[in-house]
């Protein structure tokens, strides 16, 4: 039993935080055009970070090469597409659940043969999504603990984190390590 990954979305439906643990399928970094700072720490391909001269006429083709190499090495979706898909799934399921019951009813989790998705929503529109092994019990309490613990201490009460910015995420060292510690202390981790 284990935990795969954690996504946090804000009320503007943007992914503001991502962290993973025992992911089995790799993830690719998003293309530059869709890169948002402060969300994840997926290493980008090394050649991309080196600055190229604007006079270099081969610049574009070099980039394409990097892209191609990146595609060959890493299979799977780029991060931006994956996080959008996760959001799409919870949004659609939530709306369907609401329509079926006719009430304001919360959707909490679903399970496939490979994984289980847990959702915790706050009234302020933050959505915490956790992907775990399919055989665990509900982990919503964990998401709630992250909200009332690390999230409050290192994001809400951290004046250096701009909440609601739409430009960047909420990532910072204290928050990331606190979440990491919290997860590693769980009995279903490992």
């Amino acid at each position: 039993m284990t935990i795969y990954s954690l996504y946090i979305y804000d009320r503007h439906c943007d992914c503001v935080y991502y962290q993973d643990w025992h992911r089995t399928s790799p993830i690719r970094p998003p293309p530059f055009t869709n890169f948002r700072p402060g969300v994840h720490r997926i290493p980008s391909p090394p050649s991309i970070t080196t600055k190229e001269s604007i006079f270099n006429t081969k610049r574009l083709s070099a980039l394409e090469d990097v892209e191609r190499v990146g595609n060959r090495e890493l299979k799977g979706l780029p991060f931006d597409e994956e996080s959008k898909l996760v959001y799409g799934v919870i949004l659609s399921l939530r709306n369907m659940v609401k329509k079926l019951s006719g009430r304001d009813e919360a959707f909490t989790s679903y399970r496939t043969a490979q994984y289980k998705l847990h959702l915790y929503e706050t009234l302020t529109g933050y959505r915490f999504v956790l992907l775990s092994d399919p055989n665990v019990d509900s982990l919503r309490f964990v998401l709630k603990q992250i909200y009332t613990g690390p999230f409050l201490d290192y994001v809400v009460r951290n004046p250096l984190v701009i909440m609601d910015s739409r430009e960047e995420g909420i990532d910072n060292d204290l928050f990331r390590s606190a979440v990491d510690r919290h997860m590693r202390n769980l009995s279903m981790f490992s």
Partner: peptide, 16 residues
């Protein structure tokens, strides 16, 4: 207020 509400909800656990 925009931050205090998070603190408030986390502490009280009140619903809508």
């Amino acid at each position: 207020g925009t931050r205090l509400i998070e603190d408030f909800l986390a502490r009280t656990g009140l619903g809508r």
